[in-house]
Design a protein around this nucleic acid. Sequence first.
DNA 1: GTCTATAGCTGGATAGAC
DNA 2: GTCTATCCAGCTATAGAC
Lengths: 210, 210
Amino acid sequence: MTLGTASTEWRQARRQSARDAIVDAAWAVVAEAGLAGLSMRDLATRAGTTTPTLYAYFGSKNAIYDAMFGQAARAFAEHMAPEYQERDPAAVVRESVGRFVAFSLDDVPRYQLLFQRTVPGFEPSPESYAYAVTALDDTRGRLARVGISDARHLDMLTALVTGLVDQQLSNDPGGRRWVRLIDELIEMFLDHCQRPERKGGSHHGQRQNR
Amino acid sequence: MTLGTASTEWRQARRQSARDAIVDAAWAVVAEAGLAGLSMRDLATRAGTTTPTLYAYFGSKNAIYDAMFGQAARAFAEHMAPEYQERDPAAVVRESVGRFVAFSLDDVPRYQLLFQRTVPGFEPSPESYAYAVTALDDTRGRLARVGISDARHLDMLTALVTGLVDQQLSNDPGGRRWVRLIDELIEMFLDHCQRPERKGGSHHGQRQNR
DNA sequence: GTCTATAGCTGGATAGAC
DNA sequence: GTCTATCCAGCTATAGAC
């Protein structure tokens, strides 16, 4: 790697830290105005600068959303990655779900940006998206290693967990009405997964609904 | 009731049908532009009129959202109300969940308006909200009559169903990837509800998460 | 790179003639 | 009630001086 002189490296480092400062200010704005309420004016004011300066660092407003998405995806990956102390399947699933729920409830706009599609014209770039995909794949792998590998069961678990988070956020924000159901929901889920196959093949696509 | 002459009744009927025509046009607009993409200009064009005329029938844009919410809530109540042929608990739960999911997937903006809080400054009026509350209460009563009455279990079921719908809509729109899991999810849920109480009181609030 | 100033557009809502 | 015309606020984004 002899691509840059020391001076260009300094420049790039300064540029990167300036970009980071803008993204930090962006998180502060959406925390108050909501994810869709981010405006370039507010952001410039909050960052102590003006809109043309923002455009010197980001080509568009969506580029800022994308940088936020990248930060969030990275944080998500780091939050899910640390090794799990527990060994038995129930404990691993519980810890995995617990981490996801804790991460989601910790920062609502971050959750909306990462996992809901709520910003009108925004699609994350492949680079930003990659972190989120990796983290989710890791989680899937971890579940597979403790025996939860059936595709249907994984889809059921994602529906269950996202439903839990969504209900908690929209019907009891700041409370614990649905969060406290985690253990019981996971117990229900694991009991079901460990149950022997049904006679007659009632699942796995043979039978249609209704 | 001697409040109005025949002529004022005619006027009110005409006025109501004009309002209905505007609301119908509004549904057509959101079907194309998304729920948040409704603009008074587009709506006026679609309804074959102009914006001042809209304001002759509705005091604000949110008043139009409210009329849409009222229509949707009424439709939801009518969709859930008809008597159920089935008697045994599993079949009743299955039919109830099936109706909810079918109604939700049938019209996505309608689902978003009714059950998600996605329109920025909009809160439904008490009158419009009443229909939705009634329909949900009826559903709860129906479940209670077949033995699903525990508050925790009801919250679990709502999380499960909304999670199912949300995953289906956002990760496989138009498909059946999560819809086909309905029977298995309900079987799992019912198995859990019919299970005898745990020894030691591990649920019902004694034990906190983590 | 950073500013002032503003272009260009779209939104909700209204004035006033008819 | 319905129109033409318009106001005013907010937005993203840019031109051009320094």
